[in-house]
């Protein structure tokens, strides 16, 4: 699909407007919506993963060292992770 031009000509519209490119919404970065970004203090983090489980975007990833990190390409800055973090390791800070 990436090779196709967009918006496409009528001849190129997928039959039935079907999308056979699973997970391709990733091409769209929702990070631009964000007014605040989560900042994690790994000194306080207990690696419980509560931020990961409650993220509506599914954009929080566990790193190799066991700490969690939000992918800012997608993070909309809702603040749930900061609000739910048990040991108060995450803070929301203004963008820009």
């Amino acid at each position: 699909m990436k090779s196709k031009k967009w918006p496409e000509d009528w001849q190129d519209v997928n039959i039935g407007c079907i999308v056979s490119n699973p997970g391709s919404a990733r091409e769209y970065h929702t990070g631009g919506w964000r007014a605040q970004r989560p900042i994690c203090d790994n000194e306080k983090c207990i690696k419980c993963g509560v931020c990961y489980i409650f993220c509506p975007e599914g954009c929080i990833i566990e790193r190799k060292d066991g700490f969690f990190e939000a992918n800012l390409d997608y993070c909309k800055g809702c603040g749930i992770c900061a609000h739910e973090c048990w040991p108060f390791a995450i803070k929301m800070v203004e963008e820009g």
């Binding site: 918006p7 496409e8 000509d9 009528w10 519209v13 039935g16 407007c17 079907i18 999308v19 056979s20 699973p22």
Partner: peptide, 16 residues
């Protein structure tokens, strides 16, 4: 896996 019955914005509805 595929997605059937997607949302078509004005920029594609006419072509579809």
């Amino acid at each position: 896996p595929c997605s059937m019955g997607t949302l078509g914005l004005p920029e594609i509805y006419s072509e579809a």
